[in-house]
């Protein structure tokens, strides 16, 4: 059974703009992947909903427009 409480899941968050790799340290544990369409995908394990909200809020504080947020299975990582 898949856990849908959103705890310790792998998330992918797509934002507008390319984010330099130095920001990886600021978003603890997330990897940053720039895409050719001018977006960046942040991906990594997020321990719970509260951590997810904190991350989204931090992106908002930086003025980074959020395009999508989704969870991914371990085997269909992009």
């Amino acid at each position: 059974m898949r856990d849908h409480t959103g705890s310790n899941e792998r998330y992918e968050i797509r934002i507008t703009g390319h984010l330099a790799s130095r920001w990886a340290a600021a978003f603890e544990g997330m990897t940053l992947a720039p895409h050719a369409d001018g977006t960046t995908v942040l991906s990594g394990l997020i321990i719970d909903q509260s951590a997810l909200h904190a991350l989204l809020r931090r992106l908002g504080d930086l003025g980074l427009p959020i395009l999508s947020v989704r969870t991914v299975e371990e085997d269909d990582r992009t």
Binding site: G17, H18, L19, A20, W23, P34, G38, T40, L62, G63
Partner: peptide
């Protein structure tokens, strides 16, 4: 012409 995060 650059896609980088503008503030950065």
């Amino acid at each position: 012409g650059d896609d980088q995060y503008i503030v950065d």
